[in-house]
Design a binder for these strands. Structure first.
Lengths: 152, 152
DNA sequence: GTCCTGTAGTTGTATATACAACGTATTGAC
DNA sequence: GTCAATACGTTGTATATACAACTACAGGAC
């Protein structure tokens, strides 16, 4: 469809503008910062996120978890599996419903408290990496998506 | 270290402010948009990125690839492996150096041209999701990091 | 020359992610 | 009540990601 001579131009346009490449770059770099900071606690940022959500909402099923974090249900299922194995939460079957209920354990709650200083450290580093405005923009953008999601 | 009563407060702070959670959310959502758009071509956004970089730089080793995209060398190695298996690029050993040389194949080049419309579509959807300002901010932030990287 | 250091890449292991296909159970239409 | 549709979860497969430990080699210190 495109003549070979065009290809270079198209690829350059994409390289200069592609949103996905850039979001993914930021995601990798930022994730690395937080995961390093949390390493002493044997937990990853991603796992803390799930744990925190379960803690804040009290009880949830996998599907609800996925809806909030925009994670596919099978991914949620497997992520939770690891947290369960680590002893940070429990999974029980709701007798009425077919949903499973996630509950945080004392060990999980202790972790949520203990990890805060490491998080603060990582947050500071991430803000430095992205710049104050970049970090703020990312947060605003994500929060806006969440906000729309709750209404729509 | 923290009294139990504090935990809720700390977790709420993190939930409201954490940069990593938000960047990762955006990354997942945006990646999904592009991957869906490119599905008809049997390629993922991530793979297109590597292919494009090889195309633009002519020849590269894995390490250089990793430096630009901030991907760990082992990850780069395995990602390239898949592209090689798909016939989109070749890997040859530099005789002088210990570096391996990546080169795009005609099939890879054809793909780079063919996929453009799908990319445009995804880019439009992503811009809509993030909002014009959100998308611009993400791009600026990432470009700034790249810029610093090249100088520093 | 020998040794030491640093660079490039591979391999083993683990986590994070998604899609497709499946099982199962709830629920609503009739 | 029966049946179809839907919702929740699991499992198989594939990709993306990183860390740790390893090989291999190139280049410099001595």
């Amino acid at each position: 469809m495109n003549k070979p001579a065009d290809t270079m131009g198209l690829v350059k346009i994409r390289a200069n503008e592609c949103i996905a490449v850039r979001v993914r770059l930021l995601s990798r770099m930022v994730t690395h910062i937080y995961d390093s900071a949390m390493k002493p606690y044997g937990v990853k940022l991603n796992q803390m996120t799930i744990l925190s959500l379960v803690y804040l909402t009290g009880e949830t099923g996998f599907e609800a978890l996925g809806r909030r974090l925009k994670i596919e249900k099978s991914t949620a299922s497997r992520n939770v599996e690891r947290l369960k194995k680590a002893g940070w939460l429990t999974v029980t079957q709701d007798s009425d419903d077919k949903r499973k209920i996630l509950r945080i354990t004392p060990a999980g709650e202790r972790l949520l408290a203990d990890v805060h200083e490491a998080w603060e450290n990582a947050q500071k580093q991430a803000a430095e990496l992205l710049g104050r405005e970049g970090a703020a923009a990312v947060c605003l953008t994500a929060d806006e998506i969440w906000r729309k999601d709750r209404r729509g």
